[in-house]
């Protein structure tokens, strides 16, 4: 009898070959299967996201049950997760609902403030680590300062040369390095995708 591992490689191979072949075929039957598969993948993925949510709930609930270190905070996470979920299912998600209120006044302020903290850390890191120790570090530093100065109104007002230089840097040398990365990642991704389809790379599906 085939194990789930073997069956999963067969499914992966068949789905992969189909995903590749359908690109070149306008046949209505292939198109119909393709549309169904696009639909199926979204449904499966939605359930997969719920697994993640349940896993977080299970982890924090476990800490509360075991009275782990910081279990009180885990209780906060569990309570807020349940409250938010209940608010969404009971009252809907439209404007004016409790769910929308919690999102606007609890989640958004906290989450955006966490990222705003990075303004302080990036300033501190720049002060401590941004040194012109060699040519590479010098190029890095000069480019960063040029962009920081040229992309603010004061820099633009000071001289026309600054924004024009920044535009050239962004459109020519910086762009060419990113383009090389894109081409490299593109080729690497194609190779990895082929390895996955052919069953050479099995870690992605737990091989």
């Amino acid at each position: 009898m085939m194990t789930t591992r073997k069956i999963s490689f067969v499914i992966c191979f068949a789905a992969g070959i189909f995903g590749l072949v359908q690109y070149f075929s306008p046949h209505p039957a292939i198109s119909s299967v393709y549309r169904s598969l696009l639909d199926w993948v979204q449904i499966i993925f939605a359930f997969a996201l719920l697994v993640g949510a349940l896993s977080v709930l299970r982890m924090h609930a476990g800490k509360v049950m075991k009275r782990d270190r910081h279990w009180v905070y885990s209780a906060v996470a569990v309570a807020s997760l349940i409250a938010m979920t209940a608010a969404g299912f009971a009252g809907g998600a439209d404007r004016g609902s409790l769910f929308a209120w919690l999102f606007d006044n609890v989640q958004v302020p906290m989450q955006s403030t966490v990222f705003a903290l990075l303004a302080f850390f990036v300033a501190s890191a720049a002060y401590r680590g941004f040194r012109m120790r060699n040519l590479e570090a010098g190029i890095l530093l000069v480019t960063a300062l040029l962009i920081m100065l040229a992309r603010i109104p004061i820099g633009e007002l000071a001289t026309d040369w600054l924004p024009r230089s920044a535009d050239w840097v962004l459109n020519v040398p910086s762009m060419s390095a990113k383009r090389a990365l894109l081409i490299g990642i593109g080729l690497g991704s194609v190779t990895t995708a082929l390895r996955v389809i052919l069953g050479i790379e099995r870690s992605a599906i737990g091989g």
Partner: peptide, 17 residues
């Protein structure tokens, strides 16, 4: 693994072109 295989295989296939 079964749903994962479908998602990953199909995703890999459509990503190549």
């Amino acid at each position: 693994r079964l749903p994962l295989a479908l998602m990953i295989g199909f995703g890999a296939g459509v990503s190549i072109p």
